[in-house]
């Protein structure tokens, strides 16, 4: 199974070497980075936010939030081209297809993180040290993967996987906008505060910022979310892949 997974990851990564991937993983994060940098700079600096430390984790969250879209897209393609069925007829554990997908997505997720950290450097983003940088990357990827599992379930179940892939980024909009990703808590109306506080995007981005700055991190909320979501979606995905 480890061997199969390795072979499949290799194939997935080769399939990833496309213009689409380049735009998704490099160009579009940079565009968002530049866009938000321009739009938010004045507005947030006016509120006393350290913009250089604040923005890069936000865009990293955004890139992580888009990872599930490509998970669903690729699984949808595999399904339509019959590749998934072919794997099922071969003596390969059907779970290796799922694990290989996640492995590939983990690698893919690292690319925008690196790109954005480099871009962030320009506007003054700094890590407190090497451990904080590693922790930052691990937490971000783990967060992305927990949602990728959910996307895998949708892609396997949906009758029209390619279009459901594009529908998947709908839930990301409220999650990312109604969180502390793009603005500090004080910006939002009071009645929204409980929602914002509990939002997984808030807890993870707060942890990322704390990690980068070398401040004490409250690990429990982000880990609870990531483990909870992974278990929930993971069980559903295993069932869906075994059955589908």
């Amino acid at each position: 199974m480890i061997h199969d997974t390795g072979v499949l990851i290799g194939r997935n990564l080769r399939l990833s070497l496309t213009t689409r991937s380049f735009f998704q993983l490099v160009v579009s994060p940079l565009v968002f980075f530049a866009g938000f940098a321009i739009v938010l700079d004045r507005l947030l600096t006016l509120r006393g936010v350290d913009f250089g430390q604040f923005l890069p984790p936000a865009i990293v969250m955004m890139a992580m939030g888009l990872a599930p879209v490509s998970t669903a897209f690729f699984i949808g393609r595999e399904r339509q081209s019959g590749m998934l069925d072919r794997c099922r007829t071969m003596p390969i554990n059907s779970l290796s297809v799922l694990i290989a997908r996640l492995g590939t997505d983990a690698v893919r997720s690292l690319i925008p993180i690196v790109v954005l950290v480099a871009a962030g450097h320009v506007i003054g983003f700094r890590f407190a040290g090497v451990p904080s940088a590693v922790g930052f990357a691990l937490l971000a990827v783990a967060f992305a993967l927990s949602f990728c599992l959910g996307a895998a379930v949708v892609a396997i179940r949906s009758p029209d996987p390619e279009s459901s892939a594009s529908a998947l980024f709908l839930p990301m909009l409220p999650l990312i906008n109604l969180s502390t990703v793009f603005a500090p808590m004080s910006v939002f109306p009071d009645w929204l505060e409980p929602v914002i506080r509990i939002n997984p995007y808030s807890v993870v981005v707060d942890a990322l910022r704390a990690l980068a700055a070398g401040q004490p991190v409250s690990w429990w909320p982000p880990l609870a979310w990531i483990v909870g979501l992974s278990l929930f979606f993971g069980l559903a995905a295993v069932r869906a892949f075994r059955r589908a």
């Binding site: 507005l43 947030l44 029209d160 279009s163 459901s164 594009s166 529908a167 709908l170 909009l173 409220p174 990312i176 906008n177 109604l178 793009f182 603005a183 910006v187 939002f188 109306p189 929204l192």
Partner: peptide, 26 residues
């Protein structure tokens, strides 16, 4: 194509309601 309809009609509404509290506050 139901997914297309949903995306077309829901996307703008979701975008609107989620940007509003954030930038409205800013």
């Amino acid at each position: 194509t139901p997914p297309l309809i949903i995306i077309a009609f829901v996307f703008p509404v979701v975008l609107m309601f989620t940007i509003l509290p954030l930038y409205g506050g800013l």
